[in-house]
Design a protein around this nucleic acid. Structure first.
Lengths: 202, 202
DNA sequence: AATTATTTTAACCATATGGTTAATTTACTG
DNA sequence: CAGTAAATTAACCATATGGTTAAAATAATT
């Protein structure tokens, strides 16, 4: 049983790469097996079916892409501005390391919205925690529930969209210059905080 | 030849629905044929292959989702605020009528970024027009090229992201209340303008 | 009406694909 | 080391899938 854990990990690594690149319907079990350097039957031996394997990856990816939003409010040692800066910085940096995750999640969730409930539970975002976010954050910001939602949607939109829209934005605004686009994302971290703060003050 | 045009339209209507719902790899020629109420061979008779049919839909969809950005600057009778309001309003409304287009475009373009050049040309966004946007708009706003990009990315992010992130946002912030989410989008039209304007003034 | 051209369909075809199985190899245990 | 359990593989299988074809139906032309 020395190789068991190892094989499982190899499969997950390969599956992650292939699923994120091609999506559920675009991925091929044979391709995953090849990329893992193992026999295709092993995929079923360890994970039973394509769907099951996919679900593991989807949940795992979800966990990566939903950083602890609660951190935004739970830490009372920091001012809100500091919390927000930390959040935006960490979030954009995380996506920079996995730039294809957002498009992957968006696509698969839109394809199968019913999965969202289970997936959220898997990562510990149950109803209780959701309510917590919905109630504690407005209190801390001294804003209405509605206004708080505005701020959250704004922050997330600004952090995530540039990554999913990258091919188009790069073509339209950056003359396909990768370096320039990366630099832009870097500057954005501070800018997003400014935009959000100005919403709160007004 | 009375039915020719009609059949072609029926195929396109069906293909649009299926491709946008399932994407290129998820769509099935048989499903498109069934939805169009015709024999599968007709799909190939009219459009040769799945890819060719898909490309027609992708280009068409692209045209829908890239409204005349140039309008933002060409019309000098309006103040910039008025232009922007018109743009944001029109853009969000357009997406409201086709809420799945953004996720579709994002997914397919990320899957195949090389297609972006041809697709852009098809809708008349050639190099010349792109340069025009990049140069005229900063001039009109009295901002640097960089700052102008910030504003554009912000506006597009804020307009588009809520639609692609809808399942997640609805669960997380709106207790899955569709009505509430729609109302939020409606309010957003004005809010997005405010955010963009405050960026310009500072 | 007869002939020709176009449109439509049913039946196929080759291949791809997710999944299974029986046998083989490797690792573990007494 | 023999025997058992777990891991791995090659060969299959049933079905789905994009695409083709030859014949039938419909429309256009003379």
């Amino acid at each position: 049983m020395v190789k068991a854990q190892d094989t499982e990990t190899q499969i997950l690594d390969a599956a992650r790469r292939v699923f994120i690149r091609k999506g559920l319907s675009g991925a091929r079990m044979q391709e995953i097996a090849d990329e893992a350097g193992i026999n295709k039957a092993l995929l079923h031996y360890y994970f039973r079916s394509k769907e099951k394997l996919f679900d593991v990856i989807l949940r795992e990816t979800f966990a990566k892409i939903f950083p602890s939003l609660p951190d935004l409010m739970i830490n009372p040692q920091l001012t809100f501005r500091e919390s927000l800066t930390k959040f935006v910085d960490g979030y954009i940096t995380a996506i920079q390391h996995n730039p294809f995750l957002p498009a992957f999640v968006i696509n698969e969730i839109n394809q199968n919205p019913d999965k969202i409930a289970q997936v959220f539970e898997t990562i510990g975002f149950d109803g209780a925690k959701i309510k917590q976010v919905q109630e504690v954050l407005p209190q801390r910001l001294g804003l209405s529930k509605e206004k708080t939602r505005e701020v959250i949607v704004t922050v997330i939109s600004l952090c995530v969209f540039p990554f999913v829209g990258k091919p188009v934005l790069k073509t339209l605004l950056f003359d396909n210059d990768d370096k320039a686009f990366e630099a832009f994302l870097e500057e954005r971290k501070a800018r997003v905080v400014e935009i959000a703060m100005s919403m709160i003050q007004s």
